[in-house]
Amino acid sequence: MMDAGIEDNSNHDFSGYDVRVTDAAQNGDTFVYVIKSQQISSDTEYRVEREFEDFEWLHHCLLTQEGVTGLHGIIFPPLPAKPGTSLSNSEAKTKKKIESLAMVDDWQMYCRALEEYLHLVTAHPVLVKNPAVHSFLKHRELPLKTKVKKGIFNKLTQAVEELRKEHHKDIDDFFQNERDSNLTLTAFTKAAVEKFLEIVLTEQKIAIACGHFSTALHLGIGQDDDPADYAFAKMCLKLSEVLDTVKKNFEKVAENDLNTLGFNLELHSRFQDAEKEMLFRRTCKLVDVETANKNLGQAKPHKKAAMEDIKKAADKEFDEISGMAKVEIQRYHRERVRAFQKALIELELAATCFCCSSTGWLSLNSSVQNNYIQNCTVWN
């Protein structure tokens, strides 16, 4: 159910938004994110400040809205994991939590992850119509909200349900194949994220080692007037400069790897989990339909009519969910391929064009990035 205070849908223009998360500032134990948005059909720009709990509220509103046909068949854009309050131990966290890949470097990547979440929500033809989206982007103060649950189902209930229903045979080969594919790809994607993170961490370690070596060479240069010592000192100074350049390049390589393919892999990993949740919701509804059919067959004559109504309602809801799910799966795979291709192009361009000049991919504005991508002869 929608929270009280959200206005009716009929007053909204459902055109898309240009959304940017421009900054993050620590406020005590929480972080506040600055969000600037502008509706495509309007010239008015909105600026609001949101905490992570506000993103959770928005996500909860999307998951629990009423009156949307086939809602449980939607693959909801995955919300990034809640960040920690300190960056000092981010590397240790990334080794333990795949979903925190974006936290290796700084808050710029996390702001980008939240921004991508809002892009996905506002680009979705169904979710963008939710009044909570417009309140989140436009209103300085959100409606009074209570503590929201972490997801559609209570975690304990969901764990029990998964044990009982996750291997339930599907009646539709399309969805059974998708479930099997999702199970396989989820494992492979998480493994790919872990291996890619190991590569990035190695690049960062090499950069640190080069920095230490460069500093040691520089500090070890003596002041002796002996010609041989002078020549050796000059050589050490030159080598120190070379190592410092190598250090900077490895830092940029690591940064660009995270900003391109790393970001896409992490997002894809979360999307795999989101699709799994959607397929599980549909499986639960399938079990409900089969249970209704069984109860109808065993019902006594005076209960037949009631059981028939329950069966029809279950069948209708299941058909609506399945119809929405097929559209969502096709859309998801189409967009996944496009996003992965773009990430590979960005990775290739960042590696070949910018590392040598110590210029990071994110230092370029979006129009320049898109121009390089569109003119890339390798991928287009």
Rank of each mutant, 00 (worst) to 15 (best):
M2Q: 05
V193P: 04
V121S: 07
H12S: 01
M235S: 12
V242H: 14
A159P: 00
V160A: 03
L163C: 08
Q298W: 15
V148I: 07
Q108P: 03
H302N: 14
P227F: 13
A191G: 10
V19D: 01
R47Q: 03
R282L: 15
F318E: 06
A187P: 10
H119Q: 14
A92R: 07
F174Y: 12
F52D: 01
L296H: 15
M2Y: 03
E51C: 06
A4I: 03
A325E: 02
R20N: 01
D180A: 13
L144M: 13
N89S: 12
N380R: 11
G28H: 04
L217H: 01
E317P: 11
G16T: 06
I221R: 15
A254E: 02
N27H: 05
M278E: 03
G297V: 09
M1S: 02
I345M: 15
F250G: 02
T291K: 15
I373P: 05
D224M: 09
R20Q: 02
F213R: 13
A81I: 04
K234T: 07
T283F: 11
R179A: 12
P301G: 13
H139T: 05
M109E: 01
F196M: 04
E161M: 08
W379Y: 10
N256L: 07
E335H: 09
P83Q: 14
C284G: 10
T64Q: 05
K247N: 04
L58G: 01
E275S: 02
D225P: 12
A233N: 15
K311I: 09
Q374W: 08
H167T: 13
H119D: 14
E99G: 03
S15E: 03
A343K: 02
I321H: 01
L163A: 10
Q272I: 05
F14V: 02
N130V: 09
E348M: 12
E251F: 05
K82T: 07
S37E: 03
N177Y: 07
M2H: 04
N370T: 05
A254Q: 00
S363I: 05
P80S: 13
C210D: 10
L144S: 09
Y372R: 05
T22R: 06
Y372S: 12
A192R: 02
T202H: 13
F354L: 14
V368I: 10
C355V: 15
A102S: 00
R281L: 09
M1D: 02
T146M: 14
I310Q: 13
N370Q: 09
S367A: 10
E99Q: 01
D180V: 08
L118H: 07
H212E: 00
P227Q: 12
P83M: 15
T245I: 09
F354S: 07
Y372L: 14
G262I: 01
A191W: 13
